[in-house]
Computed example of a mutant assay.
Amino acid sequence: MKTNTPAVHFIAISADEAGQRIDNFLRTQLKGVPKSMIYRILRKGEVRVNKKRIKPEYKLEAGDEIRIPPVRVAEREDDNVSPKLAKVAALEAAIIYEDDYLLVMNKPSGTAVHGGSGLSFGVIEGLRALRPDARFLELVHRLDRDTSGILLVAKKRSALRSLHEQLREKGMQKDYLALVRGQWPSHVKAVRAPLLKNILQSGERVVKVSSEGKPSETLFKVEERYAIATLVKASPVTGRTHQIRVHTLHAGHPIAFDDRYGEAEFDQQLSGTGLKRLFLHAAALRFTHPNTGEVMRVEAPLDEQLKRCLTLLRKTTLTG
């Protein structure tokens, strides 16, 4: 197998090149190098700017001097070693906050948090591939595969214990945005309905409101109204499987493009907006940092598909 082994080299950043993120700059400089390797050499501190370690999101300034280490670029045989490399690199771009204790990411819709159920790739497996030197990476909580938004990952066992305790003691606030059918009544500020989970033979989980279920509560607030739908903020008090999806259905206002609890006619009405995914997004999370004790609030922006849908719906917004 042929390889090329360039030496360490230094690049001075011109005014034209300033403003780029270092990871994007390296991808243009190191053609043929897998994205995962670029992020690895950044994380390990092998790339230096002005002799200092930097993060992948660092923006270059005119006059910066970049040290680029020797990188072995494998040809042919290694190019397709892992078809998951693109997904792994996309996870790096989805990270919105990170320190030595935790990591927060804006999970894309369609990506499972764990491999399994016939899936070989999940967020946690991807993060472990991205951070081969990390001794500890564990999910603090879960998001449904089709739900996008904030996902919290602990990088130390002590952090995981602290954050799990906050979940148990209801010291963590999660706010979701959901697009639901029709006009959500402003006076309905909470749905309290016990939820019972059934596991089908296929392994799928189906949840329904049942007196035999566990007590469940979700708080709701109208964010914006449209001719055929309402954007609501949903804040779960309890953390049951599919809770928001089933509570909105129970209230008579299912979520757009929910393939399990939704309504085909409502989805059809939205077809002109280009929406093709569940409109449920974990938009904000408030918690206490496990090390500093600081109360943190992180926000995750909507993806382009959700933003475009709302932009088009606003053209027929109801007044009053």
Rank of each mutant, 00 (worst) to 15 (best):
T111R: 03
L85C: 05
L119R: 10
K170P: 01
S120M: 10
Y101I: 05
A134H: 13
D146T: 12
V104E: 01
I124P: 00
E169R: 11
L85M: 07
A159G: 12
E92R: 06
R142W: 11
S148Q: 11
S120K: 07
A86H: 10
H114T: 13
D99T: 04
D175G: 04
T111M: 09
L143Y: 02
E169L: 05
A112K: 01
T147N: 07
K84I: 14
S120N: 09
A93N: 08
P83K: 01
Y101G: 01
D175A: 08
D78H: 06
G149C: 11
R135G: 15
S82A: 15
V113F: 03
K84H: 14
P108I: 04
G110Q: 07
Q173C: 09
N106D: 08
E165K: 10
R157Y: 07
S82E: 15
R145W: 01
L119D: 15
E98Y: 06
K174I: 06
M105Q: 04
G171R: 03
D79M: 14
R142T: 10
V140F: 09
G122A: 10
K174G: 02
L137Y: 02
R142K: 11
A159P: 10
D100L: 02
S120I: 09
L102N: 03
V88M: 08
D99E: 12
M172E: 05
D175V: 08
